[in-house]
């Protein structure tokens, strides 16, 4: 953990410095966490909700943070869990079968007013949305965010070997989709 994060954590646990430290933490991590969440839930409004919930969780649980992992992986872990919980609750509320989750996300993608990519970017995003949930997470974290497998392992609570295998399968499937779909 870097010194800035260590100081942030110390101040967050200190009653009188807590508010200011929390503002510092939000400013430092909001963009990175937002893009991580956005790639999972796709829709901007959903991502905004999940990001707020993530920081509320952080606010409520920072006193329990044991500093065994870095602040960055702890935050990513909360953000990932919040995003997956959000999708599960959507699925439950609308009685969606498993396959329909990717359909739901696909609809979010095609109707997203803030999507700024071209045709080929849209095709790549569609290929990614067809992946199983775990492979989709791993692909985004490795390919776009270029996260180390060791950090990813802490975020997703999965072994490095399993993550490498997931990424390998994901890349193959994306390539296959890009090659065979017009």
């Amino acid at each position: 953990m870097d010194n800035d994060d260590r100081e942030l954590i110390a101040n967050l646990k200190h009653e009188s410095k807590r508010d200011l430290a929390f503002q510092g933490l939000v400013n430092k991590y909001q963009e990175r966490l937002y893009w991580h969440i956005r790639k999972i839930v796709i829709n901007h409004e959903d991502a905004d909700d999940v990001l707020q919930n993530t920081f509320i969780k952080v606010w409520g649980n920072v006193s329990n943070f044991r500093e065994e992992s870095s602040l960055y992986t702890w935050l990513y872990r909360i953000a990932t869990n919040e995003s997956l919980t959000f999708i599960s609750s959507k699925k439950r509320r609308s009685f969606m079968p498993m396959n329909d989750v990717s359909e739901y996300l696909m609809n979010n993608l095609t109707s997203d007013p803030y999507f700024e990519g071209d045709e080929i970017q849209l095709k790549l995003q569609k290929a990614i949305l067809r992946l199983p949930e775990k492979q989709r997470l791993v692909f985004n974290m490795k390919y776009f965010e270029e996260m180390k497998y060791e950090d990813m392992s802490k975020v997703l609570d999965t072994s490095v070997g399993a993550l490498k295998a997931s990424f390998h399968h994901a890349v193959k499937k994306v390539e296959e989709y890009l090659k065979n779909t017009d």
């Binding site: 893009w35 956005r38 970017q121 790549l124 390539e175 890009l178």
Partner: peptide, 15 residues
């Protein structure tokens, strides 16, 4: 993965 490599690695989403 030549097809994937052709695509510029950029964030297509906006806020």
């Amino acid at each position: 993965v030549p097809e994937l490599s052709k695509i510029k690695k950029e964030n297509p989403y906006g806020v």
